[in-house]
Amino acid sequence: MWQFFHKLGSPRWFHGIASRFMPWLLWTGLLLSLAGIVWGLGFAPRDYLQGNSYRIIFIHVPTAFLAQSVYIMMAVAAVVTLVWRMKLADVFVKSVAPVGAVLTFLALVTGAVWGKPTWGTWWIWDARLTSMLILLFLYFGVMALGAAISDEKSSARSVAVLVLVGVVNIPIIKYSVDWWNTLHQPATFKLTEKPTMPPEMWVPLLLVVLGLYLLFGWLAFYRMQTEILHRERRTRWVRSMLSSGEVS
């Protein structure tokens, strides 16, 4: 276990192992996502209260789930950066922060589209919506801070601290519907409870969630590989790959 953990600290080893997993992540993620979306948008039954407007759930919920999960992953990587000084952890944080920002933006936009027919308004300063907007600003802050500091080590430490400070927002997002009076509905999935939706609705939703996580894995590996090649461009192994045509 520890040997594998230390191997992850090697940019060259990670670059190679990521290349093996990326095709599986990409095609499996695409298959699951498309199957879930087609099933949910085309064949799932209408909701007895919201009609067909609820179908935005098949985009909104997966993006909202993953937007929060990405930040939690970044927080774990930030701990690794500060405690073990592992360069690859910083590579992960800076590679996936833009992805998390896009996911959060999509969650906010699809939530607004869903909120208009359901609540009668595009936006309200609801606890869940406001905390998700704060998450978007946190992603922007991580990206800006990483770009503002030229020294790699100082940048890694500063970004890691900011990520850990911001992670307190994640439980606020999750429990906001329980702690305050809010228009936002409770969680769609709970590990300790049976889903309130029929299987014809929650199964395609679960497929999209799983597919999107796999697609995130592929995109994270791709962006990390790109960042590694940039940082290690002066090393012998990268020059060897470039000269042999393995990467362009």
Rank of each mutant, 00 (worst) to 15 (best):
Gln3Tyr: 12
Ala97Lys: 01
Ser158Phe: 04
Arg157Ser: 09
Leu183Cys: 06
Leu162Lys: 09
Leu129Gly: 01
Leu215Cys: 04
Leu138Met: 11
Ile124Ala: 15
Glu232Met: 12
Phe221Tyr: 13
Phe5Ser: 03
Val38Met: 10
Val70Asn: 02
Ser95Trp: 05
Val93Met: 14
Asp178Ile: 09
Gly245Phe: 11
Ala67Arg: 01
Ile57Tyr: 02
Phe65Ile: 06
Thr63Met: 09
Arg128Phe: 02
Leu103His: 07
Leu8Tyr: 09
Arg46Glu: 15
Val61Asn: 00
Asp126Thr: 07
Val80Gln: 02
Thr130Cys: 05
Trp122Leu: 11
Leu8Phe: 13
His184Tyr: 11
Ile149Phe: 05
Ala127Ser: 13
Ser69Asp: 09
Pro45Glu: 13
Leu212Pro: 00
Ala148Tyr: 06
Ile124Gln: 08
Gly100Ser: 08
Val167Trp: 06
Val113Trp: 10
Ile57Val: 14
Val165Ile: 15
Phe92Glu: 02
Asn52Lys: 14
Trp125Ala: 06
Val247Ile: 15
Gly245Val: 05
Gly29Thr: 05
Pro62Thr: 09
Leu162Ala: 14
Ser155His: 07
Gly245Cys: 08
Phe5Glu: 10
Trp119Gln: 02
Glu232Leu: 10
Trp114Glu: 00
Arg128Lys: 12
Leu215Lys: 07
Phe65Met: 12
His15Ile: 00
Glu232Ala: 07
Val238His: 01
Val79Cys: 09
Leu26Tyr: 07
Trp24Cys: 06
Lys153Gln: 15
Ala101Trp: 03
Gly51Ser: 13
Arg223Asn: 14
Trp24Pro: 00
His6Asn: 14
Gln185Pro: 01
Val159Arg: 07
Ser131Gln: 04
Trp39Ile: 03
Ala77Val: 04
Met1Val: 12
Tyr71Pro: 01
Arg236Val: 11
Ser158Ile: 04
Lys174Val: 13
Leu108Arg: 01
Tyr48Pro: 00
Arg85Trp: 09
Pro186Thr: 13
Thr130His: 09
Phe14Cys: 06
Leu215Arg: 08
Trp237Cys: 06
Leu206Tyr: 08
Ala97Gly: 07
Ala107Arg: 02
Ile72Gln: 08
Gln185Val: 10
Ala156Lys: 05
Val79Asn: 04
Ser150Leu: 09
Thr63Gly: 00
Ser248Gln: 13
Ala148Pro: 00
Leu34Asn: 11
Thr28Ser: 15
Arg234Leu: 09
Thr63Arg: 03
Leu31Pro: 01
Trp39Gln: 08
His15Glu: 10
Ser95Leu: 06
Leu88Lys: 04
Tyr213Phe: 13
Val163Gln: 10
Ala156Asn: 08
Phe43Tyr: 15
Ile228Gln: 03
Thr235Leu: 11
Glu232Gln: 15
Lys174Tyr: 14
Asp178Glu: 15
Thr104Ala: 12
Leu106His: 03
